[in-house]
């Protein structure tokens, strides 16, 4: 059975045994694009797909599913299809008490890598030729999800180690060159907040960068405001970002946002030997300790 057939079979079984009310997976949408799908019963199970267009990090949608559909009811039990990279977000969200493990059935997928341009109607994603892999997949050695209730597919054998070559390119610049590089990038940001909205780690009800009282940053689409927003967001995601690259993928202005997060991921790895979400932890790396309390890591 292909991985796609196995996902459908598992979804069918979960509905028939009444284990879940919704399966969050992928489907083929318009123009051949793959998109997130919300499946509510056996009759829709065959909409589910698995292919190299499945780029979205679906753990984003678990936040919505923590709320009951109707007042007074318990929140729904859901199943979710996760890639190895996305699965790390489950550990992050569990450590931050944002999701309840027993309400989420994790369909983990062994991953061969995702195509460049996936999620959009771009020629590279829809040509008949074997599509080029995303850069992040070309350095990814984690082909099995870190959390799952069922594993779909055989883990591919890869011998890859992330050497942060992308970050090194940036680190090779002088500070002045780096400032110039980033200001040029921020300049074309349109402050659409797609990077924040798509991020499973950005779940504040009111983002500090969008407060009505403009306490931390003004409303203008100026380069200073945008610099503050992007740097602030990157810091808020330090030791929390799992490098799923969704922020960079969704950016309509193609800002290389992953570089900010990857730089901080590299710092955290070197300083604390810690990578967000790789292992289950009882509390986030960066947290407040009560007086006399010992760090967990």
């Amino acid at each position: 059975m292909s991985q796609q057939e196995q996902i459908r079979a598992k979804a069918r079984e979960l509905f028939e045994s009444k284990q879940v009310e919704c399966v969050i997976g992928y489907e083929t949408g318009s123009r051949g694009q793959v998109r997130p799908a919300f499946i509510y019963g056996v009759h829709d199970v065959d909409r589910l797909v698995w292919n190299q267009g499945c780029t979205h990090n679906l753990t984003l949608y678990l936040h919505d599913k923590q709320k009951p559909a109707k007042k007074g009811e318990p929140p729904p039990r859901v199943a979710i299809v996760v890639k190895p990279c996305d699965s790390r977000d489950l550990n992050v969200l569990l450590a931050e008490t944002q999701i309840e493990r027993e309400r989420v059935y994790v369909i983990g997928v062994a991953c061969d890598g995702i195509a460049k341009g996936a999620g959009f109607a771009r020629p590279s994603a829809n040509s008949n030729q074997q599509p080029a892999m995303q850069d992040r997949c070309l350095r990814c050695g984690e082909r099995v999800p870190v959390v799952y209730d069922v594993l779909i597919g055989e883990p591919p054998q890869v011998d890859l180690k992330d050497d942060f070559a992308d970050v090194a390119r940036l680190e090779a610049m002088t500070p002045a060159e780096r400032v110039a590089f980033w200001l040029k990038q921020y300049d074309r940001c349109i402050r659409c907040y797609a990077c924040r909205q798509v991020c499973p780690g950005c779940y504040c009800n009111v983002c500090m960068f969008e407060r009505d009282d403009s306490l931390w940053v003004g409303v203008a689409t100026g380069v200073k405001e945008k610099e503050f927003f992007h740097l602030g967001r990157a810091y808020h995601l330090a030791a929390r970002c799992v490098e799923c690259n969704e922020c960079e993928r969704v950016c309509p202005m193609e800002l290389p946002l992953s570089l900010l997060n990857r730089k901080l991921a590299k710092e955290v790895l070197e300083l604390f030997r810690y990578r967000a979400g790789v292992e289950p932890v009882k509390a986030p790396l960066l947290t407040m300790l009560a007086e006399g309390e010992e760090p967990l890591i």
């Binding site: 998109r35 997130p36 799908a37 919300f38 984003l60 949608y61 919505d64 349109i190 402050r191 659409c192 907040y193 797609a194 924040r196 909205q197 798509v198 969704v250 309509p252």
Partner: peptide, 16 residues
């Protein structure tokens, strides 16, 4: 509601 389940609530569509 079903259409919007996958909507991430960003502003891309309105700004472009």
């Amino acid at each position: 509601e079903l259409l919007a389940e996958r909507c991430i609530g960003c502003r891309v569509c309105t700004y472009v």
